[in-house]
Amino acid sequence: MAAEKSSIKIITLIAADGSVFEVEPNIVKEMKTVQSYIDELDQNTVSIPLPNVFGNDLAMIIEYCKKHASEEETKEAKEEFDFEFVKRMKSDDKLRLLQAASYLNMESFLQFMAKAIAAEIENQSVEFVRDYFQIESDFTPEEEAELRKENEWAFK
């Protein structure tokens, strides 16, 4: 079994919009959802549909995985990459990638995205967060005023 598994050379990932990505096995190691699928098969080529991830997002995730799987890159280069990676994203990109990370069961990438979002919303206003997550308040003005009063120091 082990020998057969390692004989897989190329993995094909098919995104929700039909776009196709061919990656090496070490790239998908962190994607536990994909990995467990591969582990159950004993064939040389695999093609895996990912109906919950869009092509653009999958491209970014693969880019991230490639960088972090590389043994040639220094720790500093990876950190620099992470910084730029987050910088070019809008808030809804981050939220979508977080959901994709959750779907693909990618522990460290999930934590990385959660941190990026947390850093953006920490110490921000309630209105900022509603805007960020596109949430409409369902409190009545009285309810909200009372809740704010209860936690007064948090608004100073």
Partner: peptide, 8 residues
Amino acid sequence: LRFKCVSK
């Protein structure tokens, strides 16, 4: 604590 006010 502050974000308790975001939504129910």
